[in-house]
Nucleic acid binder design. Structure first.
Lengths: 339, 339
DNA sequence: TGTTCTACGTGTAGCGTTCTACAAAACTGC
DNA sequence: GCAGTTTTGTAGAACGCTACACGTAGAACA
């Protein structure tokens, strides 16, 4: 009836106990743990058996002090956009058969969160839609492997891994789709504060396609913060203006749902008075009360790929890679051909 | 031009360097860090200055090996329910002026996540709506301070801290509200698989109030998993049955939005053909395309209180506390008085 | 027979903190 | 001044793991 020496770690099994039980050295157990070179099958089996028997699990803090913690950080700007759920699902799939675990941080202050994750010795960080300055991210990438999902620029490729859909193309597709369905006065609802590179790309795509289609004169970009009231005001202002747009392309579904709300409130009909299109193709688009046409950028695939790239990076790759998905329009009633 | 000894921790400032810079011992710096007893003001100021100058941040792994990591775990069942965003906001508010950081885990397998968090030496864990067996949670609570948000039972109080709204009352309020607005055949849409204690409480409240109101014969509980298709089928089945309910109380807003979708799809009117009520009063309820009557359980307050309780627990409290919020109905058009 | 390899194990010094035990200094009260 | 008390500071041993450096044994080769 040996009592555990430390009541604090109350009964936690350590590598030493496993070694003792298996009749091998601590170093050997560590090797097995890390799948390191120089372990015979017999030894591995013995150690594995003991680990199972004692229900041993390595302590991340201790590992972190020497090497890696097998923990990845995942940073979302907020918890309200269901798109992030898709990305998360992809990340999870990628991690399924690995020994990595993912921990999320949520907030727009990437900086503080990333630092907290570095302090916690996470092996790498996945950033979703960071609207931090590229310079900060580049500096961050020097200290830790990172992968940015939804952060890119046409001209200068980032010095870290990125995973994106082609936002510029996505926006172009929206414009083409709307034109095909009889709309001409196509406005865009964009983000007001510190627009991320992604928002800028979508806006650029919108502008370029409008020009290409000879509708340069109709370009009309409204801006709003993420705050509900602000979005509502912006939409209202658009719809009450002298020449009302006959379609609004919202840079994200969340804004589109708000737009639908305002339009409904005003007693206008979608899509006959005004068509609405979003971006992300989140689950709510399918609901009969929304039936929102949107751009699918396969969040799940983005998440999956991002996690894979990050692990590759952690395990040695040094040159940055950039993965791009081709977006596609998912047409629903909110942009039906005008009758 | 002294190079850093370890290229791995590349340039990370350690407690030793701070001590050196301030001309004090390592132990002294540690004391300042932890606000421990026995530090003079002069010494504290000196150390603080050096910490600031060198931009020192303690390494969580190293702290974890000895004591606490000042990290709390927060576990959500999924990322799709916007209610969790409210809870999270509350948690964040509570942590604002503390040195604790929170890291999220997302998934229905509380077990695996909680173990991963314990392996990472988190000081405590917040569980949101766990539908794990109470027995497992009790065992978990023996090993780590935990607080469950949305997990309670009428009869046996949990041996760990809990934070809840009065779900039974919430359900009763819904029934009363619907009756007051002229509905009698009130059905409830509940959860099929492993209903959590919360779902059970809401169901119980529904049943009891129906009985109390003399509508016991009208009790009608449908069940569906969280999967969209499944919910749709359940709602459809309800609405196509011989005696169609004239109101559906959905155990969570998310299901209610799906219900609205199905009802709309079927060409029925809300609330004249059927009223819909949800639970959580999430942001989407306000949208004109939903206008969903819902029960507000102030997720933000729940999160705030939960985080506070957890920190208290970590810092010494031993008896379990139970915090309960009184829910209130937020009436919208989806349950308007029948005309 | 000696030499060189390779494969497999082990001993042990840290990693950056915390915290106990203790020493020194600064106050008490007489 | 001196014993007793309190305050302030320090030394140094852990915590659980990794990984370097090294030892040993047997095989392969000349």
């Amino acid at each position: 009836m040996n009592e555990p020496k430390s009541s604090k770690r109350q009964g936690r099994v350590t590598i030493r106990e496993v070694a003792e039980d298996a009749g091998v050295s601590v170093a050997a157990v560590s090797k097995v743990l890390r799948d390191a070179y120089g372990v015979s099958d017999t030894l591995r089996d013995k150690v594995r058996a003991s680990m199972g028997k004692l229900n041993y699990r390595p302590l991340a803090s201790a590992r972190g002090l020497r090497g890696r913690t097998y923990t990845l950080g995942l940073i979302f700007p907020d918890l309200r956009n269901p798109f992030f759920g898709d990305v998360f699902a992809g990340v999870n799939t990628a991690l399924e058969r690995t020994q990595y675990q993912v921990m999320q941080g949520i907030g727009t202050t990437i900086g503080a969160l990333a630092e907290a994750m570095i302090d916690r010795q996470m092996d790498g960080i996945l950033l979703v839609g960071p609207n931090e300055a590229p310079a900060y991210l580049s500096e961050l990438a020097l200290r830790k492997p990172i992968v940015a999902i939804g952060h890119h620029d046409d001209l200068t490729p980032m010095p870290f891994d990125t995973v994106n859909n082609d936002d510029q193309l996505g926006a172009r597709l929206v414009v083409r789709h709307l034109i095909a369905n009889g709309h001409r006065k196509i406005a865009m609802l964009s983000l007001l504060q510190e627009p991320s590179t992604v928002v800028r790309q979508r806006e650029l795509g919108y502008r370029l396609e409008m020009m290409d289609q000879g509708l340069g004169a109709n370009i009309n970009v409204g801006r709003a913060t993420q705050v509900a009231r602000d979005v509502q005001l912006s939409v209202k202002r658009m719809l009450e203006s002298a020449d009302r747009p006959d379609a609004i392309f919202c840079w994200t579904d969340l804004m589109a749902f708000e737009a639908i709300s305002v339009v409904t409130e005003m007693g206008l009909s979608i899509p006959d008075d005004v068509a609405i299109v979003g971006y992300d193709n989140t689950m709510y688009c399918d609901f009969a009360q929304n039936r929102l046409t949107s751009v699918d950028q396969s969040g799940e695939l983005l998440g999956l790929q991002a996690a894979r790239l990050l692990i590759e990076r952690i395990e040695g790759r040094t040159e940055a890679e950039h993965f791009v998905v081709t977006p596609r329009i998912v047409a629903r009633a909110s942009s039906r051909k005008r009758g």
